[in-house]
Amino acid sequence: MKEYEDIETLFKTLEGSFDGETPREGHRDRFLSRLSEEAKGGTQRNDNPWWRNLSIAATIALLLASSVFIFRGEQSLDAQVAEISPQASETSRHFAGLISVQIKELEQMSSPETKPLIDDTLTQLEMLDSDYKKLERDLVQGGDSKLILSAMITNFQTRIDLLREVMERVEEVKQFKNENYENTTI
């Protein structure tokens, strides 16, 4: 009942602000005919197919234009380095190939005795690779190119030397293991 009192109060306060005009003649008939037309499957409004087709075409054009900007992006870091110094890029690919081959060989030499040494070496190689990526970014950003290129080559040489040293140690461990087995008597 309290709601009813609030509604009463609302109508009393809004009295005089309502539109008091009566609808035009035949309003109810027009309304009912549109309602029955809609119920039969007719359209409520008269759609212009060209307008709808135009809006679809505009949407497709907008999506295509935005995808060009999204997928265009920047050149990769390697492409930028190759643009600055093609020789450095070629040298980088050569060293990276050598290092990759040596890492595969090292992983094949893995045994329970050498696994900690190999895992530690792979971690150090990842850190050196991260340092190399920083050097590439510095080169692209316009640092002292001779100094950076020298540091990049030194980084590769350090990785190769590390891999050679670890491979030698793994060989020593295997030889030591074989000697111990040979000297053991039953």
Rank of each mutant, 00 (worst) to 15 (best):
I186S: 15
S130G: 09
F18N: 03
L35V: 08
L163D: 00
L147T: 11
E3I: 08
S111K: 02
D131M: 14
A39E: 03
K133Q: 15
D144N: 01
E90V: 10
L139V: 01
W51C: 11
S100C: 08
R137A: 13
L149D: 06
E113K: 01
E182P: 01
I148V: 00
I56Y: 15
T59K: 11
N180S: 12
E107N: 05
P116H: 02
K174A: 07
D120C: 01
Q87T: 11
G97A: 04
E3W: 09
L10H: 10
F156Q: 02
E3Q: 06
V173R: 09
N53S: 11
N178M: 07
R24S: 13
E37V: 12
I153H: 10
L63K: 06
T43I: 04
H94D: 09
T13F: 04
G20H: 05
L163R: 00
I186A: 13
N48E: 06
V81R: 03
S85T: 04
L122P: 00
I153Q: 10
T123V: 10
D119S: 04
N155I: 05
N46R: 11
E15Q: 13
I56A: 08
T185A: 12
Q44T: 15
I186V: 12
F71S: 02
L128M: 07
Q108R: 14
M1Q: 09
G73S: 03
L125A: 01
S33F: 14
S145N: 03
L35C: 10
